[in-house]
Amino acid sequence: MLRYTLHRLLGAIPTLLLVIVLAFLMVHAAPGGPFDAERALPPEVAANIEAAYHLDEPLAKQLGRYVSGLLRGDLGPSFRYRDYTVAELIGTGFPLSLKIGLLAILLALMVGISSGTVAALRQGSMLDRIVMSFAMTGISIPVFVVAPVLVLLLAVKLQWLPAGWSGAPGAAKYILPVITLALPQIAYIARLTRASMIDVLGRDFIRTARAQGLGTKTIIRVHALKPAMLPVLSYMGPAIAAILTGSVVVEEVFGIPGLGQFFVRGALNRDYTLVLGIVIFYATLIIALNLIVDILYGVIDPRVRNE
């Protein structure tokens, strides 16, 4: 297991390197620069600023400088948030994004797994069809549509929940963003759970459990849930990635001061180091989470442990 983990960690290095180089080139290829404003700066001033941030150097040299900074754990200074380093900005925004993301994942797992299981047990029934149509809808509608519609309905019309973030009291402000983020994941997890539960319930060992008189509840809990969760577990990697990218939109819509908002601002402002820093941070996070998922896979399925 340890060897496997080390192996996977080493394998992540080229992936990460590729992400860094591609992201670096793409950010720099975008038209405009961090210090372009509506009113052009005097050429001497612009030249001074560019020299201070090494933007006047050849691209390859800048990339080398950036990577060597990364190796020292330094994501560099933000170009637009003066006096802040990128690391500090991530430290400011990420805790809130993490909190909302985790809540969304938990909600998605709870609702998705239970509704998927119920649908599988009553395969072909009205209930099954209702759950599955909801799931299909949830998958089809993008976050940037769901978010404003929910705000319009629940916050503006019915006034049950706050529409924005700042000034809203307590826990209520979390509800809409978390639901918006979780909805497509609920839908996907419900469908996955249903399909894999149906598959597992058709296996011979479930027939054995029935022959032992264990009853549906025990069969699901003891025999079926664990194997049926394997596909859901594999999906956790992509799901977390989807929630992270989804949070960019959701934070913008609800005005949440999380990492997603920094990301959007960074991109609009051509804040090279900030955008790069967040991309690398997210990429590392996603690679690490996928590794954890793979390790958990071995915990659930004893047969893959010694491979």
Partner: peptide, 24 residues
Amino acid sequence: LDAIRAMSIGIVFQDPMQALNPYL
């Protein structure tokens, strides 16, 4: 039937690799 199964009538299936739960 759950009260009868295993208690009064036991059954042995053909392929124990498939018939036993590999995860438990």
